[in-house]
Design a protein around this nucleic acid. Sequence first.
DNA 1: CGCATTTTTGATTCTTATCAAGACGAGTGG
DNA 2: CCACTCGTCTTGATAAGAATCAAAAATGCG
Lengths: 200, 200
Amino acid sequence: MAQHRTRAALPLERKFISRPTTLRVVEGCVALYRELGDGRRLIPDVLGPGRLFGSGLVDVQDCRAMTLAATSVETFDGPPQAAVIDVVMRQMLLRAQAHAILLGRKTAAERVATALLDLASQFARKSRSPSGKGKTTFNLHLTRADLADWLGLTLETVSRCLGAFKRGRLIAFDHPEIITIRDRTALEALAAGNARAFAA
Amino acid sequence: MAQHRTRAALPLERKFISRPTTLRVVEGCVALYRELGDGRRLIPDVLGPGRLFGSGLVDVQDCRAMTLAATSVETFDGPPQAAVIDVVMRQMLLRAQAHAILLGRKTAAERVATALLDLASQFARKSRSPSGKGKTTFNLHLTRADLADWLGLTLETVSRCLGAFKRGRLIAFDHPEIITIRDRTALEALAAGNARAFAA
DNA sequence: CGCATTTTTGATTCTTATCAAGACGAGTGG
DNA sequence: CCACTCGTCTTGATAAGAATCAAAAATGCG
């Protein structure tokens, strides 16, 4: 599936990637983003380990990519195989459509719940202690502002939602970047649009 | 580019398409849509003549398609060529990302302005009279409710925006479905996010 | 010519954005 | 080790934008 590849080892902190190649996230987190003329910014997708991106794939047009943590990526020398492109594009499109629903028709709380579940699935640590059933802990690589630009909200609203979830025992966190999911069922109900609770 | 094709001639009015084939819009208008559990609905894309869609292409997952006017489509017998899929997917992804920005970061007026320009480019009538410079007239195949579901708004807000544009001489319409663009420049400025005017 | 659907318009409410301080944490230099 | 500072996060008060509720006007259809 992969052509000749080189480990690029970019332990960049919030550096920018603009080279025209295809890349795969090995560890860490990459966010695609676009800036409007004025201050507005939008992050259409957040990529965890295993996800592919690069020119001619995803950041079509004028999207840029930025690493949000100590991140390493592999580069592919030639253009990737057509079959690979197809699979990745399909996944991107699927995610884009799901995200469109989120942006167009979900409340703030529903958006944050959806985001938490997505990030948990991409960044979950395997260390689920014997006691923890369904409890997942993961590193939220995004700041509140990044989350806001991903979810079409403001950073204050994101913070309020996370606070409300914490008070409601859906999640837990001491450090604002290390999140534990305590009640996945409730989060999923929220994300799906059931459960009208937890206004920001 | 096209394989053996048959004119399917579906002069359906808001009928539903669910067959697993690849289709091309010949004339009329097709909207892809998804329904959430409760009443909420979202239209991720609206397709005019020339656009391709169908299974394994666009309405990936559980998107459905619906015709919004007397519409005819061609069907392709086999699966389309890989190159065709690639081009179409790329276009869809591009549009999806642009739409994500609209949904995530634009005001109601900006969204409606963007939609009008998009629809004008897809459905413009060639009959630009000698006097009309830049004036385009087109048939808005979508109802206000459809527009709302496309733009992540309510039908009332859409109606108010259109009314505001009409009063501001940006557009004109007597029949609510036949729209004429009178000031394309202003609309484009609005759509781009400049010009803070015309709150709903 | 009614009847049903869509559109417009108005009044009000709600959610979220905006504005404004603080609080917390990490890193720096004395 | 301790101020100091910068960036992020939290929290509160207020405001703006769009949703909701409600009811007319158009429009289209049988």
